[in-house]
Design a protein around this nucleic acid. Structure first.
Lengths: 332, 332
DNA sequence: GTCCGGCTTGGTAACGTTCCCATTCTCAAC
DNA sequence: GTTGAGAATGGGAACGTTACCAAGCCGGAC
């Protein structure tokens, strides 16, 4: 019923618990014969080492566990990132605790508190819009933190992002080059850093063409596909409807594309690529970012911190790629 | 540098560690004044309880951690399931360790061993094609196991699946009703239980119409979108090419749809719905299953087992829904 | 004054493991 | 025969926490 312990194995093998510890952990200083007897007892009892107790006692600190905190694990973008992080962790013999925040600072705090209480070696964090002062204490206690996708306000840690502003600017510039002047912006919460950056890129491109931003064409706070579809309907009901759309994440893009038909003559550029995006009509151009690279880069940074890198925090910016589909097609 | 412990808090508050323990865990028997002093010391030192040490000592066994083992966390289907599981766990104050197996029995063993070594209370498992005898020992040790999406061969545990065979049969019956007789089957590894079931459903439908299965139209082992696209190309190069396709998971469906153009006159039904599947051409009908319900149901089962339910293993089968798109459109 | 019950508090041991050191043994070299 | 080096093994303490029980204190009832 109860799990066997080293003491049980020791009794069965006729040695001391200490010897079992050494044998099970593959440490030197155990004769082959003893090792065999121990292994036999281990198999017979179905013994497995309790790694929690182990991590408690070990001098070499560390639990070989990291926490991954994302906005929403179900979002394909974060799902790809999570998988990539998990692969890196697995390669290193490290486990991954996951948590979704829903962009709620309260839930973020809860999840992170639960993770640090379990003594994770590090946190890979897609920070919410809330403050992150509460991370100072765990960080002084040795928990390493790396931010992905967005920086955390007032937190000096490694951060991996993409060139959101430049990517958005290039996307809108492409639409301007197609002759559009009424380009709508459909975005998520303005509080989210990526959204502010992408909005800035949108304004950059308009400004470069001397076009003033039309507030009626700018919609923020779209949290779901249906929000996006509703915003699109409202935009098209305007006296001067937009002739092109810039959507700032995959969810919004999907909401918009779901509401458009093949007959609709609107040019759309969306942030984030997704499967079969190239098979839609009207054609959908995208600013593509690589969530796998994002996750892997962040994981590498985190692990090098865990391994003792104490240099100044780094900020890594990965590049996006504009993929043009439909008329005017050429990559850039 | 080092994390403060209860002893440190006790010293700072001028009480014993035992009192700190009670205060921090919100147990009764601490006077309001003492509780306030302890809380003050906790805040001042930035103390956080070490839950690993706690779980080691507690009589009430359990680490409030479960392990989720899926085929591939990046697959949208499993991503949705994972999110749903995480939500249930969060509601219960439980953490989730995740691992992907890639359908490799070796990696599955590694991941599960690492999870049980951390004393997880339960495992939510999408089993690989390998055997699962190695789970007997941890289960006797108290680790509860629930299988999702597929059963594990020779393992008497709760299992949550969908009606794969009936769903596939209905899908192919729909194609037959459209007048097709040459219906190709494009599937993943035959070793995977869901794939065998879906293949059986495909045969059921053909048999009911007195149509013999044509081995040339049946392709197994498609592991990626490009595998599926290649298989489609080969099928279309046949002397008697298929006029309709049945694809048995989202990846294969995407591979096929990515290779088809709007001009192609082929009827396609795929297992698994996905975003914007309704906006493709040729139109794509799907057998839709609900990964969120799958995850939530499995999580509920697991938690009731963890809470002490010792009844005989249950098998829950959720229903799929055929969503017909294009000609002959009507749900069922 | 004695006794009792309730409330608060603390001391000690233990969870399962590993660190640190001491002990034993073997074999070779002087 | 003594010494010593090296390998194998074990004993005790400790990691940070909680279970268990004992002790102190207070007020009230007899």
């Amino acid at each position: 019923m109860k799990r066997p312990t080293m003491k049980d194995v020791a009794r069965a093998a006729g040695v001391s618990p200490m010897t079992v510890s050494r044998a099970v952990s593959g440490e030197p200083g155990v004769s082959p014969g003893t090792a065999a007897r121990v292994e036999q007892a281990v198999r017979q009892l179905g013994y497995q080492r309790n790694d929690n107790a182990r991590n408690l006692r070990r001098k070499n600190p560390g639990t070989s566990t990291i926490g991954l905190v994302v906005d929403d694990l179900a979002n394909p973008f974060y799902a790809l990132m999570a998988r990539s992080v998990e692969d890196e962790a697995h390669r290193r013999g490290c486990l991954v605790l996951v948590g979704s925040t829903n962009d709620e600072p309260r839930r973020e705090r809860e999840v992170i508190a639960a993770f640090t209480a379990r003594q994770v070696d590090g946190l890979l964090l897609v920070p919410t819009i809330g403050g992150h002062g509460f991370l100072k204490q765990p960080m002084e206690g040795g928990t390493r933190v790396v931010c992905v996708d967005r920086p955390a306000k007032g937190l000096a840690v490694d951060t991996v992002t993409v060139d959101n502003r430049a990517g958005a600017e290039r996307a809108v510039r492409h639409l301007l080059a197609q002759g559009h002047t009424r380009i709508a912006y459909l975005g998520d919460r303005f509080g989210i850093w990526t959204q502010r950056e992408r909005h800035a890129g949108y304004r950059d491109a308009l400004a470069a063409h001397g076009i003033p931003e039309d507030p009626a064409l700018v919609r923020h706070d779209l949290r779901s596909r249906s929000d996006a579809a509703a915003a699109l309907a409202a935009l098209r009901a305007l006296p001067g409807p937009p002739t092109a759309l810039f959507t700032t994440n995959d969810v919004i893009t999907m909401g918009v594309m779901g509401a458009l038909g093949p007959a609709d003559r609107v040019d759309v550029v969306g942030f984030d690529d997704f499967p079969l995006a190239d098979r839609l009509s009207p054609p959908l151009s995208v600013v593509s970012q690589d969530p796998v690279a994002l996750g892997a880069t962040a994981a590498h940074l985190l692990f090098s911190r865990i391994d003792g890198d104490r240099s100044a925090p780094r900020s890594v910016v990965l590049l996006t790629r504009l993929i043009v589909r439909g008329p005017g097609q050429h990559d850039s």
